[in-house]
């Protein structure tokens, strides 16, 4: 084995401008997808705890399907499979955002369900006994408390989804990994470039962690 290989810092730094061009795509897919997934999650998470089985079951089916299949398969299905149904191609960026949205939406549904169910029954009873409607009780009393409890789990999901976007290099969307692959194809500096790619992911996820920690600390007032 050749163990004389030297890590080439120069090559690593030289790749950065090229790699950084992928960051907007990575951020757009992950945060665009997560934003949509958040609303999907609220919707199905609340259906999931409905007293009506007719509302509950569609939510259970959605959650089990999109939580139980790999996000890679989901994006391949959307990008290569759906066009056969729709009769026209789907933009790779759109496919990526859609895959993160439906995938994170399934997990966020469960986070929402857990958060709402964790609020003591007495809170709802106190709201109702004051004459607040069920909607007012939920909006003013249950949800603000549930949301605070959901923040750590939502942060987790955010980090997972950001990393999941790395799989989307397979559909040719120019995110971080894809940019790295293109660069390596001409420079053959895989070690340096993938290390840089990893560090860039870490920079994004650490920023999110720190932001969430600040948000959480702020949210703890009065709890």
């Amino acid at each position: 084995m050749d163990v004389t290989f030297q890590f080439n810092w120069q090559a690593a730094f030289a790749s950065l401008p090229h790699l950084v061009a992928g960051i907007p795509y990575t951020l757009l897919i992950s945060f665009g997808g997560l934003a949509i997934g958040f609303f999907i999650g609220i919707f199905f998470g609340l259906l999931r705890i409905s007293p009506s089985a007719w509302l509950r079951w569609p939510a259970i089916v959605y959650i089990e399907i999109f939580r139980g299949t790999p996000v890679l398969v989901q994006v391949l299905f959307i990008f290569y499979g759906l066009p056969q149904l729709l009769g026209g191609p789907i933009n790779a960026l759109v496919a990526g955002i859609a895959a993160i949205a439906v995938n994170s939406g399934a997990y966020i549904s469960e986070i929402v369900r857990g958060g709402v169910q964790s609020i003591e029954r007495g809170q709802r009873e106190a709201g109702l006994s004051l004459g607040l409607s069920r909607v007012q009780t939920f909006r003013d009393i249950i949800w603000p408390q549930a949301f605070r409890r959901m923040i750590p789990a939502l942060g987790n999901q955010g980090i997972i989804s950001i990393k999941d976007t790395s799989l989307f290099s397979v559909i040719g969307v120019g995110e971080l990994v894809r940019q790295g692959q293109i660069y390596i194809a001409t420079t053959f500096t895989a070690l340096e470039v993938y290390l840089m790619v990893a560090l860039l992911y870490l920079a994004i996820t650490l920023s999110l962690s720190i932001a969430l920690r600040l948000l959480e600390r702020k949210g703890l007032v009065g709890q």
Binding site: E120, G122, Q123, E125, A126, L130, G131, I141, G222
Partner: peptide, 19 residues
């Protein structure tokens, strides 16, 4: 709804809104 508007309740566990 009308009854709950006109009837107040105090609970064993207080059930104040912590937020």
């Amino acid at each position: 709804q009308k009854i709950r508007t006109e009837v107040g309740m105090v609970f064993q566990q207080f059930n104040l809104f912590p937020h």
